[in-house]
Design a protein around this nucleic acid. Structure first.
Length: 483
RNA sequence: GGCGCUAUCGUCUAACGGUUAGGACAGAGCCCUCUCAAGGCUUAAAUACGGGUUCGAUUCCCGUUAGCGCUACCA
């Protein structure tokens, strides 16, 4: 039974790349009847925030993603320290009493690659113990076995055979001078203790993996399998970041933008993974059934957003697809809060009546605001009365048509067939094309030319509202041109 | 700088040595039609470059270039 984990550090809101990492872990676990573990990697006390933690929970909840076990690293510090101590005692690590380098830049400016401080690495155990006992601050560093071993190797389930010369791995820290474990130490200690079988994470950790293998081996533990995921990048080629790309990197942007949680999960899955059979619109069950690590691609994937449109067009299209696949009742229920947020006095009944009319005209839930507005307005907002004039017609025709239609609507049966027959007959009667009949009526009741099909719209609006709006339209007609 | 990873239409991707290099989104056009959508059809659009290996390379190897990642007492 595989055991996988998603281990975010609560230092920002839930990033879409993190969300995807969770999803791939989750799909792997569900596909293989394994265990999904959520582990909060909060060893960096300075940068952790409760807001960030809340955002992670909110995002996962919205996406309807669950987990089977939960841990917080901050509650497991004893374990991390004990394991670090174990490595130190085995002589596989050493204390480094060098003062902390203030400037991060300092090291990177050096030409060569910093590996270790010979003085510290070579210090005798006695002296090291004495200095430690005297209270001198130190970090514990892993003693990378450059003499005894040529390279560290492993097989990545996505990227294949990996190898790195020990000569290229620096003596990384295990414990900070304040006693807190570093990410490498805490992560490996927990992965070992929680018997994680597969570590599925971003490719930015690929080169860290060599260090992690060293830690597992020092602990006398068999390393888990590793599967690294291609990164999500912005159209400008850079890694997605809030500072540079703004809210597009947050999952809440999509939630607030009216995306269905599952369609968004579907979209994220298609970034860096493919079922290899051209399937794109997939249910959650289908994703679980189709997901394998072999299907994960190696190149980074671009999230295609622009200044004008923060949403990837494919995400929008997928959302429209899922929207249409929803039962009317379900869609109406999803639409309701967005309608209310737009300031509409929306009742569930009315929403249910409108939903079939807009279902194929909206791509996101939020578009209910611009697509269904006239259904909810008591009084239509001002519109250009010239729009009432039919194609190849004039104000005189508009007036005639509107008056005729008003008569028809007073008595017509308010059903699709009833309205169709009555209005069509009226058009024939007046010797105008049906379009010349329908368009003025549409503008009169909707306040614009672009709207759902006319008869259904009239039915939902009801006879009374329709007649009122027709009356208002006739009043608004450009008077001068009529006589 | 060092080390690592990657490279197919604008974007997401398929083709695990032999295809007219396929699909989807976005774009263009046509059809359908009471407008707008939805739907149908059509169209344009790619193997980064240079060497090998091979009867044959998108596919395997090497190099170049480019992008990304790591190189912290961040994760």
């Amino acid at each position: 039974m595989p055991r996988v984990r998603f281990a975010p550090s609560p230092t920002g809101y839930l990033h879409i790349g993190s969300a995807r990492t969770f999803i791939f872990n989750w799909l792997y676990a569900r596909h293989n009847q394994g265990t999904m573990i959520l582990r909060i990697d909060d060893t960096d006390v300075e940068r952790n925030t409760q807001t960030s933690l809340d955002s992670i929970y909110d995002g996962l909840k919205w996406l309807d993603l669950n987990w089977d076990e939960f841990y917080r690293q901050s509650e497991r510090l004893d374990l991390h320290r004990r394991m670090a101590r174990e490595i130190l005692d085995k002589g596989l690590a050493y204390r480094d009493f060098s003062p902390m380098v203030a400037e991060i830049e300092e090291k990177s400016h050096e030409d060569g690659h910093w590996l270790f401080n010979p003085e510290m690495r070579g210090m005798s155990t006695e002296e090291s113990d004495r200095k430690a006992a005297a209270g001198e601050p130190f970090v514990v560093r892993f003693k990378v076995p450059r003499e005894s071993r040529e390279a560290v190797e492993f097989t990545d389930l996505v990227y294949g055979e990996q190898s790195k010369a020990t000569a290229d791995i620096e003596d990384f820290a295990l414990l900070r001078s304040n006693g807190m474990p570093t990410y490498h130490m805490a992560s490996c200690a927990d992965d070992a203790d929680l018997t994680i079988s597969h570590v599925i994470r971003g490719q930015d950790h690929l080169t860290n993996t060599f260090k992690h293998i060293l830690i597992f081996e020092a602990l006398g533990v068999k390393p888990p399998e590793f599967a690294h995921l291609p990164l999500l990048i912005a159209p400008d080629g850079a890694k997605l970041s809030k500072r540079k790309h703004g809210p597009v990197v947050s999952v809440t942007t999509y939630r607030d933008g009216g995306f269905l949680p599952h369609s968004y999960v579907n979209f994220l899955c298609l970034l860096g993974w493919s079922p290899k059979n051209d399937r794109e619109v997939m249910s959650r069950e289908e994703l679980v059934a189709a997901f394998t690590l072999e299907g994960v691609n190696r190149p980074n994937a671009t999230v295609n957003f622009t200044e004008e449109d923060p949403y990837d067009p494919k995400a929008t299209w997928l959302n429209a697809e899922h929207l249409r696949a929803l039962p009317i009742e379900e869609l109406a229920a999803q639409l309701l809060p967005f309608a209310r947020a737009a300031g509409f006095d929306a009742s569930p009944e009315k929403m249910l009546a409108i939903t079939p009319l807009i279902r194929e005209r909206i791509r996101t839930l939020r578009e209910v605001a611009t697509t269904a507005d006239f259904f909810f307005a008591d009084e239509l907002p001002p519109y250009d009365s010239n729009e009432l004039i039919p194609q190849k017609g004039d104000a005189r025709m508009a007036l005639a048509v509107l008056e005729k239609a008003t008569e028809v609507l007073k008595s017509a049966e308010f059903t699709h067939d009833g309205l169709d027959a009555a209005l069509r007959a009226a058009a024939t009667d007046m010797k105008v094309k049906t379009g010349q009949m329908y368009q003025p009526v549409r503008v009169a009741v909707c306040g614009r030319k672009v709207a759902p099909p006319l008869f259904e719209t009239l039915i939902v609006l009801g006879r009374e509202t329709c007649l009122h709006r027709m009356e208002r339209a006739i009043e608004q007609l450009p008077a001068g041109e009529i006589s």
